[in-house]
Design a protein around this nucleic acid. Structure first.
Length: 258
DNA sequence: GCCCAGGAGTGTG
DNA sequence: CACACTCATGGG
């Protein structure tokens, strides 16, 4: 809401970023950093369209859909929790951890726990937060990661970052790519979950191992594959929920890359 | 009650 | 490397 008027995220981002009044600088930095307001969506969509003409017609309607840039530690733990769980439950696990170990912000909200604080939790403590078998992963992760480790990982390129993330307990291909994309801002990362598998099979008729699908996607979508993933993901979920589909199947001659 | 969830670890072929 | 099986639990 701006001035009591409902606006799109795109318009809100523009208004806040354009407003350089001193008392708005904090909010401006937050929007720039965490809502990626500096990303040139038009240029990104153009780059994706040039690589895959079949996506061009649908992309414009996703103009307001943005990637987020979250805290690396929070992102890492959250996606470890997200394995084999649905979204409402993931939210519940995160808020339970915050309630038990996070700094109190107000009567109904706690910040996500710091590494140091969460390290004090036993496996049993974490299970009481509803983590299930993920409690062991988070507990072991806390014993082998600290702020300096995360800091050093910020300087890595996508491939090296991915390898290091895969060394953490509870981190496989999909989680590593999600943390690389949303936590470390590697826009070439293309996380593949069940929805993306469905999208790639439906639209391109391909199936395969994680590596095969990832190489296909990165070759096809290029340095902004992460944005392409976000578009494909939401389109596939919309298709499942309401039957609407913004992207057509490939197959015509007009969408072929010369 | 039943089925599924924005998967990962482990063991085996 | 690819597959099958198991993992603990809440939501729909």
């Amino acid at each position: 809401m701006i001035g009591g008027r409902a606006v799109s995220l795109r318009e809100a981002s523009h208004s806040i970023v354009a407003d350089s009044r001193p008392d708005n600088d904090g909010l401006r930095d937050i929007v720039l950093t965490y809502l990626r307001a500096g990303d040139d969506i038009a240029a990104i969509q153009r780059a994706i369209s040039e690589r895959d003409r079949s996506l061009a017609p649908g992309l414009a309607s996703f103009e307001g859909l943005r990637l987020v840039k979250t805290d690396e530690w929070e992102c890492l733990v959250s996606y470890i929790l997200a394995t084999y769980a649905n979204v409402p439950r993931i939210s519940k696990m995160v808020s339970s951890l915050a309630s038990a170990y996070g700094k109190r912000i107000d009567s109904e909200f706690n910040a996500f726990p710091t590494m140091r604080r969460l390290r004090e939790a036993s496996v049993e403590d974490l299970e009481r937060c509803g983590l299930g078998y993920r409690a062991r992963y988070v507990h072991d992760l806390c014993q082998q990661v600290d702020a300096r480790r995360i800091e050093s990982m910020r300087r890595l390129g996508y491939d090296d970052l991915r390898e290091e993330l895969l060394g953490f307990p509870g981190v496989g291909n999909k989680v590593a790519d999600c943390v690389a994309l949303f936590g470390f801002g590697k826009l070439e990362s293309f996380p593949i979950d069940v929805w993306i598998e469905r999208a790639l099979a439906r639209m391109y008729g391909i199936r395969g191992s994680y590596r095969e699908l990832r190489e296909f996607a990165q070759d096809r979508f290029g340095p902004y594959a992460g944005y392409a993933q976000e578009y494909l993901y939401h389109n596939e979920r919309e298709l499942s929920r309401s039957g609407t589909c913004r992207f057509m199947r490939r197959g015509g001659s007009s969408d072929r890359i010369p």
